[in-house]
């Protein structure tokens, strides 16, 4: 006699739940689908479908303004990712491994950039740079300007928080006895970090770095405030294009950015799900 499992009529509640999840997916992905489809449209008008073509992708990679913006984006992303990963990892180590005066306060401050509205942070940074530049000019006669430098600094500022959160989660899972064991086995502080701590938190560090990279590549609001002439990044450029009227070129640029972001996020998740932590068949001897 066999048991027929799972075959029973669905209740109305279950049907409703199923419908709901399909609706949610549609809500999420239908606009993306439309965007992707219309990026392959040959027509000059965004809304009128004529025939499939790669015309707009060709134009993206021939448009000097787009390429410039892309170059700026990559420079800012590279600088801010490297700097915020190093600083964020250091902050995570300080918070997880040491006890110091004002630790709670520092801990709270670190989460601020994640919590406060992006536009608030943008205004703050703009004011900060403006005041700072004025002060620098009046004291040492150096007058820096808005540009890739200010954008990079701003991206570092908000990325540190995200990197710290991700690295801390990883550090929290690590047995602090391992660092004591390394010290017990004659490793200096640096050697213990290099040989034991860093390899073990590497998935977190890489995950944090990729998150920082993605956030930097996607940022519009803050970048828009602290950018200077000639330092437009790709998302800011796209935003500007939209205001002048949507052309299918934007669709193509958006799809390129979408795919790049998706790849980065996927890789980031891959790092954070440590392959070593999977259950391995235990070998008997």
């Amino acid at each position: 006699m066999s048991v027929t499992a799972g075959i029973r009529p669905k209740s109305p509640a279950e049907r409703l739940l199923a419908t709901n999840s399909w609706l949610v997916f549609a809500f999420f992905y239908a606009p993306i689908l439309v965007l992707v489809v219309f990026s392959f449209n040959a027509n000059d008008n965004v809304g009128i479908w004529t025939e499939p073509s790669l015309r707009w992708y060709r134009e993206v990679f021939q448009d000097q303004a787009v390429l410039n913006a892309l170059k700026n984006s990559l420079i800012v992303a590279a600088i801010s990712t490297v700097a915020s990963t190093i600083l964020g990892t250091m902050a995570a180590l300080a918070l997880e491994r040491f006890r110091f005066r004002g630790q709670k306060f520092y801990d709270g401050l670190l989460y601020l950039p994640i919590i406060i509205p992006e536009v608030t942070m943008a205004v703050m940074l703009l004011l900060f740079f403006a005041q700072g530049f004025q002060w620098l000019d009046s004291t040492i006669g150096w007058s820096p300007t808005f540009g890739l430098g200010t954008i990079s600094l701003s991206h570092i500022a908000f990325n540190i928080s995200f990197v710290t959160v991700v690295v801390r989660a990883r550090l929290g899972q690590m047995d602090p006895r391992l660092e004591e064991a390394a010290a017990d086995l004659y490793a200096s502080r640096w050697q213990a970090f290099r040989r034991v701590t860093l390899p073990l938190i590497m998935p977190g560090v890489l995950g944090g770095a990729l998150l920082a990279l993605t956030l930097s590549l996607d940022d519009v609001v803050i970048t828009n405030f602290v950018a200077g002439p000639g330092s437009t990044t790709l998302p800011v450029y796209v935003f500007g294009l939209v205001r002048r009227g949507v052309t299918p070129l934007i669709n193509a640029v958006s799809v390129v950015m979408l795919v790049a972001s998706m790849i980065l996020v996927a890789v980031s998740f891959g790092f954070q799900r440590d392959p070593k932590s999977r259950v391995e068949p235990s070998s008997r001897s």
Binding site: D175, R177, L178, E180, A181, A183, D184, A187
Partner: peptide, 15 residues
């Protein structure tokens, strides 16, 4: 790391 002693930890703390 400057002491001529070594420890066997309760949880072993193998790397």
């Amino acid at each position: 790391n400057q002491r001529p002693v070594n420890t066997v930890f309760q949880s072993y703390a193998l790397f």
